[in-house]
Design a protein around this nucleic acid. Structure first.
Length: 417
RNA sequence: GGAGGAGUGCCCGAGUGGCUAAAGGGGACGGGCUGUAAACCCGUUGGCGUACGCCUACGUUGGUUCGAAUCCAACCUCCUCCA
């Protein structure tokens, strides 16, 4: 591997962010001599980003720390169209209100990872709806549409996949790549942005923007993608028991976030430490060389570091402490989810399966029954043999609460009020 | 506009009149083994009632039938070929 001289490119390469780049050596040289402005676009399809976007976020952070300027592009306009990349089917279209609401939810996350402001390397956030919404169709087609070859577009992965699998690709979605290409042109004009980054599924879109800008403004831009992350056993990143691994605390508690990273597969520990924490590489090397049970220490470190970045050191420490109490000491941690039940209801007695459902450990009575019958339900760490067992205040432990467990990992503290 | 094909549970996919809450696989959840890992083995996987029960479900709406995912009609959506 050629070693690169700029801090940005070298670090990025060493830590495993690089998948493809249009011209890594030229980009490296440029990074040596001046501040690079780069952007990554984010969809506004949900009220929070999730772990799947974390590589991109960390990459922006990394470039800022190395003296360059990140642009966060909110896809307020492109989300109205829907990116067909990597998707089998069209997404349901969102209305303007939910896009605006989603954007508001997403904005917060970035302030934790990036420094915003007016300085030369301060991050800025822009919304492509600002320029896409007012486009005049005919004019746009004449100015930009003529630079796109349909023959060529049909060859792009995102399009090919749909066509080959015989899934409908609407003309609306077909336009997505043109709009995204135009974004890059617009950002290069407005903010002197010269690099677009993104996941490897964005390669085609990025290339389109580079080509368009070269044709129209005769400017040379760069593209760089990060590897698409899956766990070593092949699962997509960012899903777990409760669903997606959201970055917003109101959608996923810091404790659950910590747990997600704590449960990283052995084979992924080193890779994740490099991508998602800022520990020095030699320290990571030590951590990932641990074997067997000892590797668990590395996972805890990973979880705490990653949680600190997203939710702050205090929340991370609390999560770690709760996990310690819960898993290593068999007790109760403060961060465990709680469910409040009225004292009166509890005194009159409630069947075990019913309480499991109410506490959110099962979606239906039947599911709760099956869970308990299958030996996966516990009350105060005692296995439940009869799912119809009636619970009352008398079942509360010394702290006056009842601990319900589904399997080994999910616990809810039931508090009578 | 014409001809043909398709639409099944979270996903893929079998099923062409009753034995079908619907094979099989994947995923998910639980158990075992372990290290809150992976791999592997076992179990569960529509809702409500502890059970024999009831309800909801095979694109939508009607119909035939003692009985329909399965037959008929219309409609919707998608695909292929033709114009």
């Amino acid at each position: 591997m050629t070693s690169h001289r700029s801090d940005f490119i070298r670090t990025l390469t060493e830590r495993g962010y690089l998948h493809q780049c249009t011209d890594i050596d030229a980009l490296d040289a440029k990074a040596m001599e001046k501040t690079i402005t780069a952007y990554i676009g984010f969809d506004c399809t949900a009220p929070s980003l999730h772990a799947g976007s974390l590589v991109s976020i960390m990459l922006l952070r990394l470039m800022q720390k190395n003296g360059h300027k990140p642009i966060v592009l909110m896809g307020g306009g492109t989300t109205k169209v829907g990116d067909p990349s990597g998707k089998d089917e069209s997404r349901q279209l969102l209305d303007d209100d939910s896009i605006a609401a989603n954007m508001a939810g997403i904005k917060d996350v970035f302030s934790k990872f990036l420094t915003f402001g007016d300085g030369p390397t301060d991050a800025i956030m822009v919304n492509n709806d600002d320029w896409l919404n007012d486009i005049q169709y005919i004019e746009f087609l004449r100015d930009f549409g003529r630079h796109f070859s349909v023959n060529r577009m049909l060859g792009f992965e995102s399009v090919k996949l749909r066509l080959e699998r015989e899934h409908n690709l609407s003309f609306l979605e077909f336009n997505y790549m043109i709009l995204q290409a135009y974004d890059f042109l617009e950002l290069s004009r407005r903010h002197g942005c010269s690099l677009q980054m993104g996941g490897s599924d964005q390669w085609g879109n990025i290339i389109n923007g580079i080509d368009l800008t070269r044709r129209i403004d005769a400017k040379e831009l760069f593209g760089l993608t990060t590897p698409l992350l899956t766990t070593s056993s092949g699962a997509k990143m960012g899903k777990s028991v409760g669903g997606a691994i959201w970055l917003n605390a109101d959608m996923l508690s810091p404790y659950d976030y910590w747990q997600y990273w704590r449960n990283t597969e052995d084979a992924d520990v080193g890779r994740f430490l490099r991508l998602f924490t800022e520990l020095p590489l030699d320290e990571i090397a030590k951590l990932e060389s641990l074997e067997g049970t000892e590797l668990n220490e590395a996972k805890k470190r990973l979880a705490t570091e990653v949680t600190t970045l997203c939710h702050g050191a205090d929340a991370a420490a609390e999560a770690a402490e709760t996990a310690k109490k819960t898993f290593e000491e068999g007790g109760l941690g403060d961060d465990l989810p709680t469910y409040e039940i009225s004292k009166a209801d509890l005194d009159s007695g409630i069947q075990a399966f019913e309480l499991f459902k109410q506490a959110g450990l099962a979606n239906s009575n039947g599911e709760a029954r099956r869970l308990i019958k299958g030996g996966g339900g516990r009350i105060n760490d005692e296995k439940i043999s009869d799912e119809t067992q009636t619970l009352t205040s008398a079942d509360a432990n010394a702290d006056g609460v009842i601990k319900l467990s589904s399997g080994k990992k999910r616990h809810v503290v039931v508090t009578p009020v």
